[in-house]
């Protein structure tokens, strides 16, 4: 069970004379159960890449395999792919349209053609997962707060019970509490429901804490691929492409350069603090 991209290229505006080569020869394998952070500067091709994964856009060249099947095959059911690879867009709250929260969440399952009972069950479960209480089920989604709207929108995708969940900047514009809530939810989904998650973000701090594999994109290419500790070794390269590394990791790196004895490869702020404490104690 995996997604595999082979020599994938994507070019915007073919034939207009203003072609933009958004993805260049991407080769990538995403395994089941991974929690991937996809980082890159604005315009690096992140959003284009994720839209290829569920077939919303078609690669200009190259092949994508989902569970070993070529999704560009004529007989391949694109509709079912979209239910298996759930994609949450940037600012997903802008896609809400129904009269009540529960109806909006049911839109996805309804399109899958599920029976009424199953549809409702999945929607209730999804709303519960994202922490929307029963008292909000029958209110208009347009009256909710920004953070609530976003959680409802994410529930709309979760109710389709995807095997892979792709989120494009899910915490953009949220306050720290809202951010931790959503990222915490993703972690829970990953560990408890065993969903493969691909988290797109340009905030290294957000990604570092949660993911177990990082992909860094620059100008349409994947330049770094590995676990966060390994990727953060390339501090210079990351800074050159305008990303940098989390503040806490940077402090550790600089202390080590100055001769401090810091063990391991701490990633999160807490781990870094612990590592520095250990060094100070000795």
């Amino acid at each position: 069970m995996s997604i595999k991209l082979q020599d994938v290229n994507y070019i915007y505006g073919i034939g207009t004379g203003q072609e933009i080569h958004a993805l260049k020869n991407i080769n990538l394998e995403i395994n089941n159960g991974e929690f991937i952070g996809l980082a890159g500067h604005t315009g690096s091709g992140k959003s284009t890449l994720v839209q290829l994964l569920n077939g919303l856009m078609r690669a200009s060249s190259g092949v994508i395999y989902y569970n070993g099947q070529n999704i560009y095959d004529k007989l391949y059911n694109m509709h079912s792919l979209r239910s298996k690879v759930g994609l949450v867009f940037q600012y997903p709250e802008h896609q809400l349209f129904e009269t009540t929260v529960i109806n909006d969440v049911q839109f996805g399952p309804k399109n899958l053609g599920l029976p009424q009972l199953e549809m409702e069950l999945r929607s209730f479960q999804a709303l519960k997962m994202v922490g929307i209480g029963d008292e909000l089920l029958d209110v208009s989604p347009f009256t909710l707060s920004g953070g609530q709207k976003r959680r409802v929108a994410i529930a709309g995708i979760l109710a389709m019970q995807p095997e892979v969940l792709v989120l494009d900047e899910p915490v953009a514009g949220l306050d720290p509490a809202g951010r931790d809530e959503i990222l915490g939810l993703l972690k829970k989904l990953h560990s408890e429901n065993n969903i493969t998650i691909i988290l797109v973000s340009h905030s290294m701090d957000d990604i570092a804490k949660y993911v177990n594999r990082m992909l860094v994109m620059n100008k349409g290419e994947i330049v770094l691929d590995g676990n966060p500790a390994k990727v953060f070794q390339f501090e210079k390269e990351l800074e050159r492409i305008g990303l940098g590394i989390p503040q806490a990791v940077k402090v550790c790196h600089q202390l080590r350069e100055a001769g401090a004895y810091i063990t391991g490869e701490p990633i999160t702020a807490e781990d870094c603090a612990e590592a520095i404490y250990q060094w100070l104690k000795v």
């Binding site: 979209r82 867009f89 802008h94 709309g156 389709m160």
Partner: peptide, 27 residues
Amino acid sequence: KIMKAQMARGADFESGNIIQRVKNMVP
């Protein structure tokens, strides 16, 4: 963007008769 977002939720804008298609535009 909205079209893509709804397509990601399984919406279908290409099939059905004319009334069905207009209804599908609501989202």
